[in-house]
């Protein structure tokens, strides 16, 4: 029996009158891939933004192990070992692949308020950055400027930057967004590999991919949790079928 690594309790976020996330209570288990699915506008990305600290919740609580994350700033959450990737590619376009991962790797030093020794001389940072690049499969692009890489490679780099911070828990926001079939397959393989050593929270629209990698699923509709369970349970749930799987283009 694994324990919960990240938990939300009655977590809500409203923008003016719109309730984007509505009393969500989920336990994300350690060493599992937990996918969150739901139609557009269900509040999935808002939920991730709450978990990573980019948004402050209107009410409710988030705990990560023994830490209360609810009011923690983004950088502190990262330092606790939660990494995230973005739905919309969010990299340093004018930096090389290595430099993109370098910053993440450097953030695991006790401090970067170091002014004298060249950054290059910190070999442990370089190792971490190179390991991340290796993991996300961009070895042959290590010195390429990010803006010159293909869209799929930029998506891989997006994940690589997160890995360079050596997180325990990964928050992946639609890692397959906009990718072709082959590229998608590569990233699915990458997620499977990552799942061996990390806990993962995954938002994804591609149902084939979700069912291929997820250990647990939560279905969100209109900001609320409709159901949480194993892929099997979700697939067979009449409620989910009615509300979501049977209605739209996202059929499994």
């Amino acid at each position: 029996m694994t324990k919960a690594i990240l938990s939300t309790r009655d977590l809500s976020k409203s923008f003016g009158g719109l309730v984007a996330v509505d009393s969500v209570t989920i336990d994300f288990m350690e060493s599992r891939v937990h996918a969150i699915i739901g139609p557009n506008g269900a509040g999935k990305t808002t939920l991730i933004n709450l978990l990573s600290g980019e948004l402050l919740p209107t009410s409710g609580k988030i705990t990560f192990g023994d830490n209360d994350l609810t009011r923690q700033p983004v950088h502190a959450i990262s330092q606790l070992g939660i990494g995230r990737s973005y739905q919309k590619t969010n990299i340093f376009p004018e930096f090389t692949c290595l430099k993109n991962c370098w910053l993440g790797a450097q953030s695991r030093m006790s401090t970067s308020m170091r002014f004298f020794r060249p950054a290059k001389a910190y070999s442990e940072v370089r190792l971490r950055a190179e390991r991340a690049i290796d993991l996300c499969g961009l070895n042959d692009r290590i010195d390429t400027v990010a803006s010159a890489m293909s869209y799929g490679e930029q998506r891989q780099l997006e994940i690589g930057m997160m890995l360079a911070t050596e997180p325990n828990l990964l928050l992946l926001d639609e890692p397959l967004a906009g990718m072709g079939t082959d590229e998608s397959q590569q990233v699915v393989e990458l997620i499977k590999r990552l799942a061996e050593e990390h806990s993962v929270v995954l938002i994804e629209h591609d149902m084939d991919a979700v069912f291929a990698v997820a250990d647990a699923l939560t279905v969100m509709v209109n900001g609320k949790v409709l159901a949480t369970g194993t892929p099997e349970e979700i697939r067979n749930s009449q409620e989910v079928q009615d509300a979501y799987l049977g209605t739209g283009e996202d059929v499994a």
Partner: peptide
């Protein structure tokens, strides 16, 4: 020298994309 050091890497990151630099764990 400052710009070559770890500190310089962080401020360049802030210039290029501050939100992402923060998400990587830096108190920008």
């Amino acid at each position: 020298i400052i710009l070559k050091a770890p500190f310089g890497q962080v401020i360049r990151g802030i210039h290029a994309n501050e939100a992402r630099t923060r998400a990587l764990g830096f108190n920008t």
